[in-house]
Design a protein around this nucleic acid. Structure first.
Lengths: 236, 236
DNA sequence: AATATTAATATTGTATACAATTCAGTTAAG
DNA sequence: CTTAACTGAATTGTATACAATATTAATATT
């Protein structure tokens, strides 16, 4: 999970807000809620059996992570991205994650190496067995883990934020349900993290992310978003 | 100001929360509130003549920006930094701001060039006339402006966050009240942004920030913080 | 006198009531 | 028939009351 701001979290018993936040973050990142989907406070308060106060806090936090977009007096929706804005998010992610992997390369402990390999295998298994949501999640966790072991908290935060953000973009614009990441690439990344020099690792990460970006498909407009709005209108 | 999260702000009439946020951000960044100073909701609600609800939102936002540290059931203080954590914040800032200035270098409009030069002059004037708070603020605005003109919103956000964060660190550990930035450096930065290649600009930014970091002084412990706690105890 | 326990105070956490705003649907005028 | 203004429902914004928690002060015990 993203290390949301400077609010320290209790280790054992999570706060109500934390539970709501994590659950919503998960369904958004696993693409169970499409970009553009509305998140009204009352429904969420109902679903989670807490007051709107708690929901508001969770939504606010999600908005800071970039997962949710809050417009004053209107409410929260899962973040949508204009095609024109896509490149800057990928550029930001390349810079952050490139720096992170460079810091990690050549310094992996055997435990970390094994963890990473296990994650790639698991991701592979999920995708092969058709469990797309789980595979997607593991793929994101792979990138999250690299950020976590780089030993730079603010940069890891930034990296994870951009990983999540671009995943949302992929959810919006990538028609092939692969989630964008190729498992082969992830194997190669582990390899270069173990042996290769930092520069090479950074270069490979850049290529990996460029590859994801190049595979996006921009239809004339973000279809799903509008569809959702239309459906909601027609429902009454 | 930092572009806080995905909450769109109304241009003309600022929200109550926005006013509180900006005011608090200003006094923190201008070092009128020392790191470690407590920010209780009731006092702030009193001062700003709004309810605690509004204050809570503003504090929460400040915590996401890293300017304030909120501990559950305890409250908010101006962020303090352990000496051991200082390097990662500067490293993160170097990466973000280095990338930003590289994107800007050689692409300045004449208006932007003049704006930057004017900012350096103004900063200089404030420091020479002994107005430290204003000079400090202008120095930070100089860095903010570079972030803003780089045309990459998420990276600019990250850059500004780290600029603010490291400024807080300087407030805590730099005894000379200069705020860390030398005006000479800023002039040179403008110069390389106008002419120089991106790589050189990035290198100069790195050196500039390294210079600030090297000038920090770590006493045995963060003196001011503890003093504040002690004073508060002895006050009753 | 020092320490542990308890009581009092202050502060944050949560729920809820009410105000303000937005949006859709309806009605009335051109 | 089109457009404008209006009404009503739904949703967010704000204030406040009460509960839970932490801190401080006081008391009792060793």
């Amino acid at each position: 999970m993203l290390q949301g701001g400077n609010v320290e979290k209790s280790k054992g018993s999570k706060s109500q807000e934390g539970i709501v936040y994590e659950r919503l973050f998960d369904v958004i990142i696993e693409q169970k809620l499409q970009p553009g989907a509305r998140l009204t406070e009352i429904s969420l308060a109902d679903i989670f059996s807490v007051s709107r106060t708690v929901i508001r806090r969770a939504l606010l936090r999600l908005s800071y992570e970039g997962a949710v977009d809050i417009k004053p007096n209107i409410g929260a929706i899962v973040t949508t991205t204009e095609p024109a804005d896509v490149p800057q998010y990928f550029e930001a992610r390349r810079i952050a994650e490139g720096a992170l992997i460079r810091m990690v390369a050549g310094k992996l402990t055997t435990f970390q190496e094994e963890t990473l390999n296990a994650m790639v295998r698991e991701e592979n298994r999920y995708f092969l067995s058709g469990n797309r949501a789980r595979g997607l999640r593991k793929s994101i966790d792979f990138h999250f883990y690299i950020a976590d072991i780089a030993n730079n908290k603010p940069l890891a935060e930034m990296g994870k934020k951009m990983i999540a953000r671009t995943s949302l973009i992929v959810a919006q614009y990538n028609l092939s349900g692969s989630g964008g990441c190729a498992c082969v690439d992830h194997s190669a990344l582990v390899d270069v993290m173990v042996h290769g020099p930092g520069d090479k690792a950074e270069r490979m990460m850049h290529e990996h992310l460029q590859h994801i970006e190049d595979n996006l498909y921009f239809g004339k407009q973000p279809i799903e978003t509008d569809l959702y709005r239309i459906l909601e209108v027609g429902r009454s």
